[in-house]
């Protein structure tokens, strides 16, 4: 594992005095800069803290918020909450899938996009909604989904 990653994990571990109890926060921090929880990261946390790697993987795999695979630079989260469902979120998911050409959970070959279905984003009044990184897009139609993705592609010069 490259030493830069080790240094970053070391810096995270310094913030918490009880790694057992703060495991979720530690993993959130690691995912924050790595984009996901890698096998190497888990092994290094075990090495440094003594928290068993099985326990770490147990926690990482339990919560939907943790990813065990890399994500794209733009992480598209299509809301599958109740209000969105009633207002057609399934079609929005299908549209993202069609436009990107990848299944939920996968990353495009250029590493630019990944997408997933998520539980409620809490923006029910503007359903159907999706979130790309930290930005929420609401009142979606298939056209709007396509144009949002295309404008990101344009910005990135693809």
């Amino acid at each position: 594992m490259i030493s830069e990653l080790k240094n970053k994990i070391d810096a995270v571990l310094l913030k918490y005095d009880n790694p057992e109890e703060s495991l979720i926060a530690i993993l959130q921090d690691v995912q924050g800069f790595l984009g996901y929880i890698s096998r190497e990261a888990v092994e290094y946390i075990t090495e440094k803290t003594g928290v068993a790697s099985g326990r770490i993987m147990g926690v990482a795999s339990f919560y939907a918020g943790f990813r065990l695979k890399p994500v794209g630079k733009y992480r598209i989260m299509v809301c599958m909450g109740t209000a969105c469902h009633v207002n057609g979120s399934e079609r929005m998911g299908d549209t993202v899938k069609r436009v990107l050409g990848i299944d939920a959970g996968d990353v495009t070959d250029d590493g630019l996009f990944s997408w997933e279905e998520v539980a409620c984003l809490g923006c029910c009044s503007i359903s159907p909604a999706m979130m790309i990184n930290d930005t929420v897009y609401g009142n979606l139609t298939q056209d709007k989904v396509i144009s949002v993705i295309n404008s990101i592609k344009e910005e990135e010069g693809k």
């Binding site: 979720i24 926060a25 339990f62 919560y63 939907a64 918020g65 943790f66 539980a119």
Partner: peptide, 8 residues
Amino acid sequence: IMMGAGAF
């Protein structure tokens, strides 16, 4: 503050 990790 503790942030949840996505479990209903």
